[in-house]
Design a binder for these strands. Structure first.
Lengths: 158, 158
DNA sequence: CTATTGATGTAATAGCATAACACGTCAAGA
DNA sequence: TCTTGACGTGTTATGCTATTACATCAATAG
């Protein structure tokens, strides 16, 4: 199940998979995938693109949940903590994780034309970063790797 | 002239150097290092740490420049465009570039305790990222590499 | 001389994020 | 059973970050 956003794929299936995995993981670790949280994850998965907290808030409010910012931020923070979603710094936005439960630090490829985001494997990159940092006496706890550019589809349209 | 922020160094000298280089570079490329812009760069260099746009704005306003946000954002955007400063996505903040004119894409090491930021060389990392992205058909134009963790000094205090 | 460009100043607004408090539920332990 | 504590949710209010739009001015090219 290779790269997500820049390739065609059975979307309903990947959404269902991710939800099922989220259920399983939360059940296993004692945290709770409550209705808001679950719905937030569904929305992220269905959107299949990076989504701002306020967009999420509107969707949640439309579904009968609260309509104040903390509602969205709390749900999103939970999903990020659990590894079900990632935060894209550059976009102030969130995106569903394509590999929940695998404990990875991905690189994000952000298309500046269509705004889609893909995850790319970045474990070797992170390792290199850790090493470089260690050389300066710095201990890395979390890393952010994001690239802005053009996805294949948008490049073709230029 | 190795790593900046996490080591002692002659700070007034590095500030002067950077300013002089900025003068030279702008003179050479036809852009103008106007008073606000120059002052913004001085402030960044003297602060020697990442600084939010509104902190910058206060400093600039105190020096007799305008006191509306665009004043700070325009100066900072200019400095970033010219390569005299970098934006730290994770902090919504800006920091003076330690190697102006060298056209590099650094990695930033952000200490979560003292909030200081150091630049680490990241050209190999960027190259790896470009390659990984190219494998997915994605063309990288700009990359952001930031690590959050503990600097040597703060680690020692734990 | 004037048309254009670039820089600055200002007002207004949009967008992102969090602190603080109230309330309800549920489960563990007295 | 009662109660206490932890957690989750809702809401108010606020603060921080960033941009759009418009007016003004100076320098310069034609």
């Amino acid at each position: 199940m290779p790269q997500p956003s820049f390739h065609d794929h059975d979307h309903s299936r990947c959404t269902g998979d991710a939800l099922a995995r989220a259920e399983a993981l939360t059940a296993a670790n004692g945290s709770r995938l409550t209705p808001v949280r679950r719905r937030a994850l569904e929305i992220l998965l269905e959107a299949h693109r990076a989504m701002g907290a306020y967009d999420m808030l509107n969707r949640l409010a439309g579904d009968g949940f609260g309509n104040q910012p903390p509602v969205a931020y709390r749900a999103l923070d939970f999903l990020v903590e659990q590894g079900f979603a990632h935060r894209i710094q550059r976009l102030n936005a969130f995106t569903a994780c394509m590999h929940p439960g695998e404990d990875h630090t991905p690189a994000f490829l952000i298309c500046r034309a269509c705004n889609r985001v893909a995850e790319a494997p970045a474990d070797p990159l992170c390792a290199a970063l850790d090493t470089a940092a260690a050389g300066l006496g710095f201990t890395v706890e979390r890393s952010t790797i994001e690239a802005l550019g053009l996805c294949p589809a948008c490049k073709a349209l230029q």
